[in-house]
Every structure is written in structure tokens, then in C-alpha cells.
Amino acid sequence: MLDTSARFDRLPNAVGVGYKPQHFNALRADPGPVDWVEIHAENYMGDGGRPLAQLAALSEEFAISVHGVGLSIGGEAPLDTAHLVRLKKLCDWIKPASFSEHLAWSTHDSAFLNDLLPLPYTPETLARVADHINQVQDVLGRQMLLENPSSYLTFAESNLSETDFLSELTHRTTCGLLLDVNNVFISATNLGIDAQSYIDAFPTDKVGELHVGGHDEDHDDHGAPLLIDSHGKPVTDPVWTLLDYTLAQTGPAPVLVEWDNDVPDWPTLKAEAARAALALTL
């Protein structure tokens, strides 16, 4: 397999996009403001063929962020060590500028549910997630970033705030954080909290990457707004505004535009990236 030297030891404070194979040629011919791309780790765990060839080619031109969606770091069960080994193999090969995963679980009793499921915030879950992050960082031999979730509900048993939970994890594990601004907006709307206050309470000095993306709008049983993290639309104006507010606190940071469903043509996604680039210059 191609030996890719580690040309980037961190993501640039510039704009990236979630990589979609249908953009392979257009992205390379006309990247616009895009300096880096993020891939979903699990899509590049085959033995060969087009996915790995495309990733090798991309890594020649862009810094790569490997973003896991299947590790189930918030799971009650021990981490899947076979999956950790696959992640290590991928990271050792492509030498990404960043590795990130989610504060969520997706596997239970060996069933993988293909979604990011929520967990209560308690001293017990904090200890478990910290252990899992330490294990990941030990195996990979690098720091990881942990992403805040989008929430549709809370747990009656939670007795820590999400920002305190994440902050404490950075102390117990030396992990960094991936702050998804769209997720903050979704959770704040869905749970009736103030999005800016959430950012104010967030340990922004630990942020290694920001995400923005689109969401859908629905309503709950009481007619209250219920936003769904769909990644299938343009970023909304309030989320761009919240990105500006966040960047004012973090300073320049890598910003990713995510568009995973109903993926548009490259010029449309590039225009979203350009808007994110503008936010970085303000």
C-alpha cells in the first residue's frame, strides 16, 4: 500500500468538507477555499479498490481528518478491540492530521445500530467514557477529539451538564474536543437552553475542530420545535451566526462543512465552504 508521509501534524485553521466520492474529480480540479477533507473511518476499512485509492490520492493534496462513527465510545460494553485495530491500521497508513469520534454509543450486544445514541451524564458514565478515550488514545498513539452530540431528549438521571462532562473528560484523558456548532444549535433549541450560554460554558481552549451542517425541522408532542440533525441541507443562518460567536471565542480553527444526505453537486458544497471561509476571516 502507498506510504503516505505525515505532511500535516494538525488540521489547518481553514475550511474542510466532509468528503463524498462523487466529488472526487470536481474537488481536486477546483477546491476553492477547501484545504482539508474529513472522511468517515468505517468507509475506508475495506481491503482495496476505489475507496482506498481515492483516499491515497486525496492525502497527496489535502490534510485528512479521520472521523469515526462506529467506535461506540459511550457504550456500556468494552470497546470492540478488533475495530480499534482496524482504526489503528487506517491511521497508521494515512497518517491523518486529526482523528475524532463521538460522545455517543452505537453498538449494544454486538448489534451495530448505525446511529449516534445518547447517554446520561453521571459520574459513572464519565468514568466509563474516560476509560474508553484513554484506551483509544493508547492504541492509536495519538490525541483524539471528541464531538458533542445533537440531543433530542435528556435523561432524568443526568446530574452533570454536557459542558462540564466534556470539560472533565479533557482533564482525565488529555483528549481535545470537536465542537459541532450545528449540534449545539439543535440541542439548545430542542432542550430549551441558550446556545450562546452553551458556547460560553464550553472549554473552547480544548477545541481542535468545528463542524457546521444542515438540519431538519419538526415538532414534538407539545408543539415545541424539534430539530433533527440530518446533514441534508444548507447550513441555516442562525448556525452561521453561532459559528461567528464561537470563532470569536476559539480564535481561528479548522471548520468543517458536513453534507451527508441528499448530497449536492460540488459547486453548491463549495459555496457553503466559501461561506465558512468568510466566517474565518472575520
Binding site: 468505517e42 468507509n43 462506529g70 467506535l71 475495530h83 451495530f112 448505525n114
Partner: peptide
């Protein structure tokens, strides 16, 4: 349901 995170 899938038995692994490798949806492929």
C-alpha cells in the same frame, strides 16, 4: 441489525 460497524 448489523453485527459490525463495517456497513460495507
Amino acid at each position: 441489525p448489523p453485527a459490525s460497524p463495517l456497513m460495507m
